[in-house]
């Protein structure tokens, strides 16, 4: 009896912790757990709305509930965003919003999700609720899907959705596109960049695994091409005025298109300060195969001679001080 009352007294002390400490605790757990705490009691109900650093990652939802489809996870993400941003009585400010989501194979749904997200983010920024956004569109897990979407529907994106896309991406300051299949033309990613005029940091990561050769995914991929794109098709009048940093993962010095792509960005970004080139992510399975797509030797510039050749090629005919960094 006595020990019971001491116990509950001790436990009750937890509720005496001030909000800022409880928020520090919530910042150390994932968003799903945060949401679970919001149904604990009246006091806890409003705490998630006070978080200043919000990390929303669709991957995390799926990871915790494997029966959830990517489609369902996207719907949960959007619902979460609207409850986090939408509460009118809540005046707290989200200093940093990390948003990470998939683009789905189903084009129509994917665009719908993207516009929903874009609208929520834009409104939240316009109202001052959110100060900074980092956006990662990942195709790592279902890696052919982004290219699927793009190659199948390039016209729709540009002609019909261009304006809406711009509204959706208007306030994004950091845009990362990971998991782009190596054989696809990269220039289409510039359409996204054109639609996101506030981007300061733009990153692409090329995927060139060979270890799934012969699988169904790979068959689908090789049937699709997107030759529709070349630099001449891009709108020459558009410049990425805010862009300061370009990150290129999976750089391969013998692929002409990588160089062309980087040059195209440099030319259109008058305020660009640095270009970060990174080698591909190591993959043991691929290295064992020694496939032309993924040769066992890295095609990343190794010595100073190779590096200075790349720098010369990238900066030829240009007098702006852009720093090329090899990682």
């Amino acid at each position: 009896m006595q020990s019971n009352s001491i116990q509950s007294y001790d436990q009750g002390r937890f509720n005496t912790l001030p909000d800022d400490i409880l928020l520090s605790i919530l910042e150390r757990v994932d968003m799903r757990t945060v949401l679970r705490t919001s149904v604990l009691s009246t006091r806890w109900k409003h705490l998630p709305l006070l978080l200043s650093d919000v990390d929303l990652d669709v991957d995390e939802f799926i990871h915790q509930n494997s029966s959830m489809s990517a489609h369902e996870a996207m719907a949960v993400l959007i619902k979460l965003m609207s409850s986090l941003f939408g509460s009118p009585q809540n005046e707290s400010i989200i200093k940093k919003l990390n948003l990470s989501f998939y683009l789905l194979t189903d084009l129509e749904t994917s665009l719908k999700f993207l516009f929903n997200i874009g609208e929520l983010v834009c409104n939240a920024i316009d109202s001052g609720k959110v100060k900074s956004v980092e956006l990662t569109i990942t195709t790592e897990k279902r890696r052919f899907k982004l290219t699927d979407l793009m190659s199948g529907a390039s016209n729709i994106w540009i002609e019909y959705e261009g304006k809406e896309l711009r509204t959706a991406l208007n306030k994004i300051t950091k845009l990362l596109l990971h998991g782009i299949y190596v054989k696809f033309n990269l220039l289409w990613t510039l359409v996204l960049l054109e639609s996101a005029p506030s981007v300061k940091i733009f990153g692409v990561k090329v995927w060139n695994h060979a270890c799934d050769e012969g699988t169904e995914n790979r068959k689908q991929l090789s049937e699709r091409r997107n030759d529709l794109w070349d630099a001449a098709q891009l709108d020459g009048s558009i410049h990425y005025l805010q862009l300061e940093r370009l990150e290129f993962g999976g750089f391969n010095q013998i692929i002409r298109e990588h160089l062309d792509f980087i040059r195209a960005v440099i030319e259109r970004a008058p305020n660009l300060k640095s270009v970060i080139l990174e080698d591909r992510d190591p993959c043991e399975d691929c290295e064992a195969m020694d496939n032309p797509i993924y040769p066992s030797i890295s095609m990343f510039p190794q010595n100073n001679d190779e590096k200075s050749t790349i720098v010369k090629q990238l900066k030829a005919g240009m007098n702006r001080p852009v720093e090329i960094i090899f990682c």
């Binding site: 116990q7 509950s8 001790d10 436990q11 009750g12 937890f14 509720n15 400490i21 520090s24 605790i25 919530l26 150390r28 757990v29 994932d30 757990t33 679970r36 705490t37 149904v39 604990l40 009691s41 009246t42 806890w44 109900k45």
Partner: peptide, 27 residues
């Protein structure tokens, strides 16, 4: 210390968290 408390919350149902921290249900 905050990490320690966070680890206690992780993976628990709301009811389990209420019990662990003596939070009164008042919704």
């Amino acid at each position: 210390t905050t990490q320690c408390i966070a680890d206690t919350i992780k993976g628990k149902t709301p009811e389990e968290i209420r019990t662990a921290f003596g939070i009164e249900y008042d919704l």
